[in-house]
Computed example of a mutant assay.
Amino acid sequence: MAWRMPAETAPHERTWMAFPREGLTLGDTDAQRTAGYETWTAVARAVAEFEPVTMLVDPTETARARRLLGDHATLLETPVDEFWMRDHGPTFVVDDERPGVLGAVDWIFNGWGAPDWAQWRLSAAHARTVAAHLGAELVSSVLVNEGGGIHVDGEGTVLLTDTVQLDPRRNPFADRSRVEAEMARTLGTTTAIWLPRGLTRDYDDMGTNGHVDIVATFATPGRVLLHAQQDAGHPDHAVMPEIRAALAEATDAAGRRLEIVDLPAPAALRDEEGFVDWSYVNHLVVNGGVIACGFGDPVADDRARGILADVYPGRRVVTVDARELFARGGGIHCITQQQPVTAVAP
């Protein structure tokens, strides 16, 4: 077996999501809960314009999911506690030597380092649930990892973060070589580019400790989109040069130096909880489109749409207001997971 994770820009069979359920992440008030349901639904409806959506739904939320989603998603009932599908769900891989075979990597999920507040034990089973539903081959991993902690170019390169895969709350005995060997086995990568850290807000109690999918992503092999905080009043203004330097010094699996394309942050610096981590990097590429994060900033949102349209030519960019997602610790990429099309044997 030679598993390989295709680039997000490769054709998709569908997108997977998990529907919210009541609890800490969704919010304490009716207004917060309503906003959460509406935002997850808005993302699903936007994705469904381009490709099918399958939504994992806790039985307690099935009626609400049917009412809000209508025919925009296929529902699959299963126990749910957390609903950041990118992280607790499977990472899909293909085997180029066996056309038509789909693999589902089952990382160990412990709620981003087993913090006291996290409710994750039900959703930790989702990779196995989805693999069984699809008839995919389960690729079991001993690594504690989340899908938001990796980005691949589909040609052998993976972006990682020291503070995620080497987090002692996740993998206390891991080192870079062990992580890279596991990425090679499960994702087919041969070159790892390690970023030193993530964005400042991501180190709060309800953060992920530095997920890469809010910082940098491959637009194409050899070309990276990078979050840019241009306001010196935000702590990420000092963080980003260190991350940029790591990318500028790296070479990918093909031996190329990376072209770096900036995605400037919106103008807002703070919300009620502190400095924001609002990032346009946390978009989802879909068949024929891009689902982009919006932040109620017409100038910055429009600028981001233009950059995304330029680096993903031929795709229609659709913006969905992501502020309610970021208030809960993530963005559009974090709540979605693409299932690639598997090649059919001739």
Rank of each mutant, 00 (worst) to 15 (best):
V53N: 08
V179N: 04
E51R: 10
V299I: 12
V317C: 10
T220E: 15
L284V: 10
P196D: 02
E82F: 00
V47Y: 09
E182V: 08
S177M: 09
V344L: 15
R128F: 02
I108E: 11
N282L: 04
D262Q: 05
D231K: 09
E259D: 14
R257N: 10
V130S: 03
T190L: 01
G148I: 06
P298V: 00
D252S: 09
E249H: 11
S140T: 15
R33W: 07
A42H: 02
A42S: 14
V344M: 12
H72R: 11
G198C: 01
G198H: 09
W40M: 11
M85V: 05
D277M: 13
Q32C: 01
A245S: 14
P11Q: 11
A238Q: 11
T78N: 05
T220G: 00
P313W: 00
W120I: 04
R121E: 15
D302K: 10
E137D: 14
G294K: 06
R185A: 15
P340D: 08
R178W: 12
M183Y: 11
E146K: 02
W117F: 14
R323G: 01
F326P: 00
V299P: 00
V224T: 07
G314D: 01
T163F: 02
I335E: 08
V47P: 07
F109I: 01
V212T: 07
E82Y: 00
R21C: 13
W112I: 03
R303Y: 05
A124T: 03
A65W: 07
N110V: 05
I150F: 08
V139E: 08
T251W: 11
V290N: 02
A327I: 00
L76A: 13
Y280G: 04
E51K: 07
N171W: 08
W84Y: 06
E22T: 14
A268C: 11
D95K: 05
T319D: 09
L26W: 14
P346I: 08
P59Y: 05
R4S: 13
H333D: 02
Q229H: 12
R14K: 15
W194I: 03
L68W: 11
L269P: 05
V286G: 12
H211R: 12
A10D: 14
F326A: 08
G198S: 11
A104Q: 04
R14Q: 15
V57H: 10
R176M: 03
P172M: 07
A118G: 03
S141M: 12
D153C: 03
H283M: 01
W107T: 02
A118M: 07
P168F: 10
R21A: 09
R316F: 02
A238I: 00
R176S: 05
E242F: 03
I150Q: 11
E324A: 10
V94R: 11
E97S: 14
D71S: 15
H133W: 12
A267D: 13
P6G: 05
V317E: 14
C334W: 10
G289L: 03
H126S: 10
L284G: 01
R128L: 01
D58K: 02
V158D: 04
A184N: 10
A304Q: 11
E38V: 08
E49I: 04
D30C: 00
